[in-house]
Design a protein around this nucleic acid. Structure first.
Lengths: 219, 219
DNA sequence: TTTATTATTTAGATTTGTCTAAATAATATT
DNA sequence: AATATTATTTAGACAAATCTAAATAATAAA
């Protein structure tokens, strides 16, 4: 099955939005791909034709077994290239996504596998996300860590360990709750405070104590 | 100036066929790109519009200064990726061209320059062709060598040192003359004979003596 | 449960890159 | 020079991927 770049991008985004088995909505996919809902509908018909997704009018999209396999290959290539860029070419976290976005579309199993070998068959990428192996097997989903020792840049809040009203009030005031997406802007060694940016807001600084009680996982 | 993949491929092929300053013909370019003359005409109009080529109806194509600059960047990327594939991922000569053909279209100067650095800023690629530097400067064109010690796979005949009628008759019979494109299929250590394939013909074996008198350079 | 709102799809258009078939220009042959 | 051949261009068509505007379905609100 030979996929175009557009088809690959759709498959990849469906995989991302599914997060397991959820049904993906036309609008959500259009937003994710920075395109229009009408375009997504067009593509959905095509991908259904190719048996890569399950799709019925107005009922949303899920990947078929074949679609999931394809998605995992694309994700594998993307994350391996990110490793390459960071480990070998000294790029930093935040620069690599865009480049990997292009490199991932070079569809050669031999290249992919040799690249993986060259990198020492890494199992997580620089953002903390797991890299599927050649058969599409993923290592167990990355465990959550407390925000103060997260090593990925973009995170999502999964839990808050201290349930004190004081902390919850603070988090509430800052617009932080379960599922909130954060970006780590800086660590300040002096007091281990962390500057974070909540999606769509301006950056704020939080103390080590607060950070220790916020559980996160890489986005 | 943001070029599409199709535009880049045309620019690159024009550069290749120009070999310095020759005028490139619509048919030759179509053949090189495995496309149709009508398509080349269409693209020529577009590239002229973008001021990357000089082109007048029925008068053939040459690169403009800007076009040459663009071509050199593409060639640089292509050849660096070939180095990477051979030096780091242990691919062999003949496998890398196709892959580099795809990788070359990732247009990021930063990536290109870091890759070059990572490889030790090589000046020739695995086929013996020079790699333009970040400014588009090429090291002196690779010197011709005799066919028996050529280390690149695809070659073009540049001279024949022995002018004996016997040799010329032999070459003539085999369809080999100045400008003929050859491909080395195998070296036989036993008697240093070489199996070569003339473009469009079936492979033939030539003796060391003949090979010593055919001068070639990498294609 | 009717109405308003939001989500999704359809219909038809657009852009890019390509093609075929026919027309025209350039070149070679007689 | 007239004619044949080859090279190139034009005209019109097509597929892929996208879009806008309008129509329709699903969902939420009154």
């Amino acid at each position: 099955m030979n996929l175009s770049i557009a088809e690959e991008n759709h498959i990849k985004s469906i995989y991302k939005l599914q997060e397991g088995d959820a049904v993906v909505t036309t609008n959500a996919l259009a937003y994710e791909l920075d395109t229009k809902p009408a375009s997504v509908t067009d593509m959905a018909k095509k991908l259904k034709e190719k048996k890569l997704i399950e799709y019925e009018k107005y009922k949303g999209i899920t990947l078929s077994a074949d679609g999931r396999k394809a998605a995992l290959q694309i994700v594998r290539r993307h994350r391996l290239w990110e490793c390459f860029l960071v480990d070998k070419l000294s790029f930093s976290w935040e620069e690599v996504h865009e480049l990997a976005e292009e490199l991932e579309h070079v569809r050669s199993e031999k290249l992919t596998n040799r690249l993986s070998e060259f990198l020492g068959n890494p199992v997580i990428d620089p953002h903390g996300d797991p890299i599927p192996d050649a058969n599409g097997k993923l290592v167990k989903p990355r465990p959550q860590t407390s925000l103060d020792q997260a090593n990925a840049k973009r995170l999502v809040v999964t839990a808050v360990t201290d349930q004190s009203t004081a902390l919850l009030a603070f988090l509430n005031a800052k617009g932080i709750k379960l599922g909130t997406q954060l970006e780590i802007m800086a660590h300040y060694e002096y007091d281990n405070s962390i500057e974070i940016k909540v999606k769509g807001q301006s950056p704020i600084t939080i103390s080590e104590q607060v950070a220790k009680n916020i559980m996160v996982r890489p986005l």
